[in-house]
Design a protein around this nucleic acid. Structure first.
Lengths: 303, 303
DNA sequence: CGTGCAATG
DNA sequence: CATTGCACG
């Protein structure tokens, strides 16, 4: 989605090769504060959920992603952009200790495109696929697991595409997805995890000014996210850290963006308000973890 | 072209993982004899020509192919399967010391397919592309350089394809190519270099028995090569080493074939008979040189 | 098994 | 600058 040219970064260094990591970084590296172990009400966390856009599950495994997950040891793991059908899931993932219940969705007729996974320590009561909208349910973008006290949704929201060629279907998705989440929320609290493919506010990306017409930061996509919040959902990270700058979860591979923290916050834990109020302990961004062009995020809830 | 199954190699080792390099190699490693510096008539070599199917020029450069060529220091270098249009030739090749005159041909409308090159120390009198047969001249398979005393032809003969799906056009090629070479030979002696995509006799591949219906060893392709020899051309290597076994220039990447010398002799220097009689000093196979699924070959002529 | 493409991000 | 699948070998 960030298809910015080099102009923003091209320093006027004369003839020399521009340094890959300029001394004065345009955005500060995000400093991750210590874990908040409890809710404001003093309840200690009992549920740990990690979400990660892996940008190709098989390559991610080779880069040690599964190893990191094992150390992180979440109770639920939500993966996006697996680019991998269920039968091709590598054994290193199938055998992840503590996550025996695994569910996979992939795009029909488009091998290597999209795809999400949801892995859990305990068996869900029920698992569903998609959002109940035929237009959007053939690309392996959503898995919903119902647990006794909440729904967990692993979602990979469609990218609006270069030149915004797929902005219209994306906006239709936003509406349909919101209705889907409302439906869940009417039953039980919802924990939505994943790559929502939008940076909500200017603070959520490094270069807001030059990205007003870029996929992931158009007014329409941002409004879609605002409507989600208006419908009784909470952006967990931003609630806890309203002023945090440079907190990104995605950096394009192009031009060494990650080393300079030229990034976007595209990955979220979005919670039903009552869950955010009662259960949210912390929402972490694991900026330093390699393995993908996105980093993992982890939420801690007191259930 | 070798699409043999694993059955030939699958040893009955019981449960164990079969070793990649069995102790008893089915074909001996080829032992390259010392260079013959002179013709039988006692004339010392003055022209050194190297030919190599590089299987992708850009990858080959990264694997040090250009470096090896620099050390080999031929007067003429013929490359096949460059998979690279002229403008994409890497600078390491463009700047090869001693080979300033460079000519490139590539497949029209099929980027990354086929392609040949011819590089020379001295400027050719004339360079032509193709073989004068419209059916065959759009794939970048032949470059002919005319020098004062001979033609040098860099050729990548079309593969008959898996299941011999392209055997018919290949046989038409063989006829047209022979006519083309006859026409050259009527003017000046010819040195044909390249991947002729045929193993002529049983001695020219490791597993003749199981490859009678494989591209590169069908009776029709072998007869095509026999016709070439019958038209007054000489297989330089086989003339000099009529009994040499295990002398191959290609090994499929599959199954560790190269380590076991399960190969084919597909790359040749084919000379006009008068050139073979008067000028041929040696014809070498550089079996150990890495960088492609083919190895380079080098001819030494006393011009 | 490995090349270089194409579509996608 | 990466991923995947693909055609080709």
């Amino acid at each position: 989605m960030p298809k910015r040219g080099k102009k923003e970064e091209a320093a006027k260094d004369g003839e020399g090769v521009p340094p890959k990591v300029p001394k004065a970084s345009p955005a500060p590296q995000y400093e991750d504060p210590p874990l908040r172990e409890e809710t404001p009400g003093g309840r200690r966390w009992t549920l740990k959920v990690t979400s990660w856009n892996v940008d190709g599950l098989r390559a991610w495994v080779k880069k040690g992603g599964a190893q990191w997950v094992q150390e992180e040891a979440p109770d639920v793991l939500c993966l996006q952009e697996t680019k991998c059908a269920g039968p091709s899931v590598p054994p290193e993932v199938r055998g992840l200790p503590g996550l025996p219940h695994q569910f996979w969705a992939s795009a029909e007729g488009k091998p290597g495109y999209s795809g999400v996974g949801l892995l859990a320590k305990t068996e869900p009561l029920k698992v569903t696929y998609g959002i109940g909208a035929p237009e959007h349910d053939s690309e392996g973008r959503v898995i919903t697991a119902e647990f006794p006290s909440l729904f967990v949704v692993s979602a990979y929201v469609p990218n609006a595409g270069r030149g915004l060629v797929r902005l219209e279907p994306r906006l239709r998705w936003d509406s349909a997805f919101l209705e889907f989440l409302r439906g869940l929320d009417a039953q039980k609290p919802v924990l939505l995890c994943g790559d929502l493919n939008v940076a909500h506010q200017e603070i959520d990306l490094c270069h807001p000014g030059s990205n007003r017409a870029s996929a992931g930061f158009t007014p329409q996509e941002r409004e879609g996210f605002s409507r989600l919040l208006g419908a009784g959902f909470v952006d967990s990270f931003r609630r806890l850290y309203p002023e945090a700058r440079g907190a990104y979860t995605f950096w394009t591979y192009l031009g060494g963006a990650r080393a300079r923290n030229v990034g976007w916050r595209l990955d979220y834990f979005v919670l039903s308000r009552r869950l955010a109020d009662d259960a949210l302990c912390d929402s972490k961004i694991r900026s330093a973890v390699p393995g993908s062009d996105h980093c993992p995020i982890t939420a801690y809830l007191a259930m």
